[in-house]
Amino acid sequence: MLDRFVVVPASYLYLLREGARGPEVLLQLRQGTGYMDGHWAAAAAGHIERGESAPQAAAREATEELGIADVALDFELTMHRTQGHAPIDERVDFLFSARSWSGEPRLMEPDKASELAWCPLAALPEPTVPHERIALAHLGAGTGYLSLGFENAG
């Protein structure tokens, strides 16, 4: 029998606005999740559920994690990532941005994040989740696809 791997899909939403020092992104400080706690990350992100599209997942996460609706999603890029030869599931992340939504973003899951903050894109806080730091550097660049952790990645 073949040893098949699993690809885990997720959607990330980066809310953007113009700040005094240029573009800002809304980030959350992770806590209590067991993954990258103490790191800054997308204010809304999560696994795509069965029967759900990537944009639907991003919109759902916006409501669940930030209490906002009517999010005008812009597709940014897809990131396919792994950790080299480590025996982990591969990840496929669909990244979206938005500059328009209804409601005021607020922390809806305080057991998973301790803080929300608008951060300058040019000066992200430390520490930021490493693969998200890379993704944030590509917002608006028309990159389309990124791969991380693969030998001879194209």
Rank of each mutant, 00 (worst) to 15 (best):
M1F: 12
L2G: 02
L2N: 11
D3Y: 06
R4H: 11
V8D: 07
V8K: 13
P9M: 00
A10Y: 00
S11H: 00
S11C: 03
Y12W: 06
Y12S: 07
L13C: 15
R17H: 06
R17W: 04
G19N: 09
G19K: 02
R21K: 09
R21M: 10
P23G: 00
P23I: 01
E24T: 09
L26F: 12
L26C: 13
L27M: 15
L27R: 04
Q28E: 14
L29Y: 02
L29C: 04
R30K: 14
T33Y: 10
Y35P: 03
W40A: 11
A42M: 11
A43F: 09
A43H: 03
A45P: 07
G46C: 09
H47V: 04
H47P: 06
E49Q: 14
R50C: 04
R50H: 13
R50A: 13
G51Q: 13
E52I: 10
A54T: 09
A54F: 10
Q56L: 12
A57F: 05
A58I: 12
A58F: 11
A59G: 07
A59T: 10
R60Y: 08
A62I: 07
L66N: 03
G67W: 06
D70H: 14
V71D: 12
D74I: 07
F75A: 09
L77E: 10
R81C: 06
Q83L: 14
Q83Y: 11
H85P: 08
H85E: 15
A86N: 09
A86W: 15
P87L: 08
I88H: 08
I88F: 09
I88M: 04
D89T: 02
R91M: 13
F96E: 09
S97Y: 02
A98P: 13
R99Q: 06
S102H: 13
E104T: 15
P105S: 07
L107N: 12
P110T: 02
D111L: 12
D111Q: 14
A113D: 11
S114L: 10
E115K: 10
E115V: 02
L116R: 05
A117D: 02
W118Y: 13
C119L: 09
P120C: 05
P120N: 04
A122Y: 05
A123Y: 00
A123E: 12
P125N: 01
E126P: 07
T128A: 01
V129N: 00
P130M: 01
H131T: 11
H131V: 03
E132H: 09
E132V: 01
I134V: 15
A135N: 07
L136G: 01
A141T: 15
T143P: 01
T143G: 00
L146I: 12
L146N: 07
L146A: 04
S147V: 01
L148V: 10
L148A: 05
L148M: 10
G149F: 10
G149R: 06
F150Y: 15
F150V: 05
E151C: 02
N152M: 03
G154V: 01
G154E: 07
